[in-house]
Amino acid sequence: MAMVKTPVLKVILCGEYGVGKSSIFRRFINNTFVPNSDRRSTLGLDHFEKPYQLTDKTVKLQLWDTGGMERIASVTSSYYKFAEAAILVFSLDNASSFHVLSQHLLDIVTYAENAKIFLCGNKSDLEGSSPQVTDADIETFCEQCHNLISTTYKTSCKNGTGIEEMFTDIAMQLVESNRSRIELQTLDHNSFKISNPDPVDEPSCSC
């Protein structure tokens, strides 16, 4: 059993600039929150892997942040490649971040065809009594996109509500739907990552 490699599942964050993707990413990495998102706090951070222990299996979720490219330009299509899941994030206090989701959804189905798609309404702490995006809106949207959305979550990066639950649930669903594929993963893969041939030459990384 110790010889079996833990499957790594790539999960990407998608959605408008400012909805809290980097904040979700930061919660995932070290469960912290920075109120006035200082871009530099995730500078240089590309993606992060974390193990999830499920009943009969351990998997690693590898979460990717956009790097802020979506601010003015579009995210590179290669961001989507090899993704097993995409989390479509909008902000519950910002209706327009919800209305543009169909565009992001289109990008996902185009560039990450096989990804399972999840919907995440973030900033639930700001939802208040008269929400900008209602549960009915969300339901309608899910119906409109032919049930491409597997599950909907509500989270708050500010107080941490719902974040861990979301990732655990996603890990579980991915394992369920990919069971056979995950088992095949190492067998079927004849493309490879390139890496350094002689690690002895490398200065040992003591960081």
Binding site: L43, G67, I72, A73
Partner: peptide
């Protein structure tokens, strides 16, 4: 086409700002 995109992402991750079109 994946190659330039990979380096573009590297730049963005390190704070580079992107404008297309």
């Amino acid at each position: 086409g994946e190659l330039p995109q990979g380096f573009a992402r590297l730049s963005a991750i390190y704070g580079g700002t992107y404008m297309l079109d």
